[in-house]
Design a protein around this nucleic acid. Structure first.
Length: 269
DNA sequence: AAAGACACCTGTCCGC
DNA sequence: TGCGGACAGGTGTCTT
């Protein structure tokens, strides 16, 4: 589910509630997530959260007694609720705090994860190999061009590869290719610098816009206060079964890398 | 090294 | 109303 804007929205929702708060209790109601929740997580009882951040689609929580690496998978979301609020069906983790609030992790499909590390999360093997943040200056035309060189893979698959650039999932890959008017099937190595420059800008623009709107809610995703994200209203092609908003021809749906791709064959070349 | 298939899991929707 | 199948926002791992 969540791509970078949804994770960023989640992070922004958590920060004011969890910063400097001390964990009073950790309940693992269902340890079977993508990887089993490590028993060491209980070492964080009585730990104080020193900072929260995001790297790609991973949420990082630093405490004075070790650190947490979270991933929301396809259907994960987090809520801040009163300590005594009832747990929902797919609430797998409940973390209570001394200030009377609790963090709930809800994830119907259980593709998400919670990991524990003693050392800097940024050095964890899942994180250390990630590509640059798309909204940083490190992600620019020079960089993308260097990663596209000699690559025959379709450009859409390339920009969804977290080792190339983090945070671009299926929705925003489709949307940025639409904005930059590039056919998703184009081999990465055959795209001109000018068009890669447009793509870089489109990715930044789409992600920034989506963050400003609180992410995209299709089914499961909600913000930490339970509100939906509103970027779904701004989608041009993703999930579009009708006409291209630019030229009115039918939006096409194809499969790439076992994922649905939506694009306009008239506007995107 | 790169490309592609598959795995994990539950819920929803659509056609018969 | 029920059932089977396709599909869903991700990504590590395995096989070619």
């Amino acid at each position: 589910m969540p791509e970078l804007p949804e994770v960023e929205t989640t992070l922004r929702g958590l920060v004011p509630h969890l910063s400097d708060q001390t964990i009073s209790r950790i309940e693992i109601r269902q340890p079977r997530l993508r990887w089993p929740v490590p028993a060491q997580i209980q070492r964080l009882q009585h730990a104080t959260i020193e900072s929260l951040s995001r790297r790609g689609k991973y949420l990082l929580m630093y405490t004075d007694q070790g650190h947490m690496i979270w991933h929301l998978g396809m259907s994960g979301s987090m809520r801040i609720l009163a300590l005594d609020a009832a747990s929902s069906k797919h609430e797998h983790i409940k973390m209570s705090f001394d200030n009377g609030i609790s963090l709930r992790y809800i994830d119907p499909r259980r593709f998400g994860a919670l990991l524990f590390v003693d050392t800097d999360p940024l050095l964890h093997k899942l994180i250390v190999s990630l590509g640059p943040e798309p909204l940083s200056d490190n992600f620019d035309t020079d960089y993308l061009q260097s990663r596209c060189m000699k690559r025959s893979t379709a450009i859409k698959n390339l920009i969804m590869d977290s080792h190339v650039v983090v945070g671009v999932g299926n929705i925003y890959a489709c949307e940025s290719l639409f904005l930059s008017r590039i056919n998703p099937k184009t081999p990465a190595g055959r795209i001109s610098r000018l068009r890669l420059d447009r793509l870089v800008n489109a990715i930044k623009q789409v992600l920034q816009c989506a963050i400003a709107q609180g992410g995209t809610t299709l089914q499961d995703f909600t913000r930490t206060d339970g509100q939906p994200g509103y970027f779904s209203q701004s989608l041009n092609v993703y999930g579009n079964k009708g006409a291209c908003p630019r030229c009115a021809q039918a939006v096409k749906r194809i499969t790439q890398g076992q994922r649905s791709t939506f694009y306009c064959s008239h506007c995107q070349h």
